[in-house]
């Protein structure tokens, strides 16, 4: 079953509210396709390691983690995703640009309660660019509706 693609719409909170949102793309993993909305919140790849770190956030946030192959995992990615969701994240976005194994590791799962999306390359760089400049942003995740191929009839 091909992975469903995600549309990620990003609205900057400290800018003109009528401004056009930034539209990016990703891929849902683990049978988690669906809608989610929340403020973007970065987590370091070394976080989400043990439940004792009770860094509760406001409720409506979407976690983004830039994965790095040089960082040994404290937990499998699926457990990290579940931990983020348990901490209240409405969805989790993994930037897998620098961690080629991550996509394969997550694709085999099927039991995630809320959306988990992989992003890479320019989509990821744009998202992380906002984070790096601490540009507060509201993110909306939706399932991409593939346009049906137009059928040509020779009449």
């Amino acid at each position: 079953r091909p992975a469903l693609r995600a549309v990620i719409k990003v609205a900057l909170l400290n800018h003109d509210p009528t401004g056009k949102p930034i539209t990016l793309e990703g891929v849902f993993v683990g049978g988690s396709a669906g809608y989610a909305e929340g403020k973007l919140m970065q987590y370091h790849p070394l976080s989400l390691c043990n439940t004792s770190e009770d860094e509760r956030q406001e409720s409506d946030f979407i976690t983004i983690v830039k994965l790095e192959h040089r960082v040994p995992r404290c937990l499998p990615l699926l457990d990290k995703a579940r931990m983020a969701l348990d901490k209240g994240a409405q969805a989790v976005i993994f930037d897998v640009s620098d961690d080629a194994n991550a996509a394969a590791e997550l694709r085999e799962t099927d039991s995630l309660s809320r959306p988990v999306v992989l992003v890479r390359a320019k989509d990821a760089e744009q998202l992380m660019g906002l984070v790096n400049k601490n540009e507060e942003a509201k993110v909306r995740i939706e399932i991409m509706v593939e346009q049906p191929q137009s059928l040509h009839y020779d009449v």
């Binding site: 370091h44 960082v71 984070v131 601490n134």
Partner: peptide
């Protein structure tokens, strides 16, 4: 984007939150 990923010996890794980062 993530700052320090590992520390030199004897140093502690602290995950610091600065706004959304």
């Amino acid at each position: 984007y993530n700052g320090c990923l590992s520390c030199k010996p004897r140093f502690f890794m602290h995950l610091e939150r600065i706004g959304m980062k």
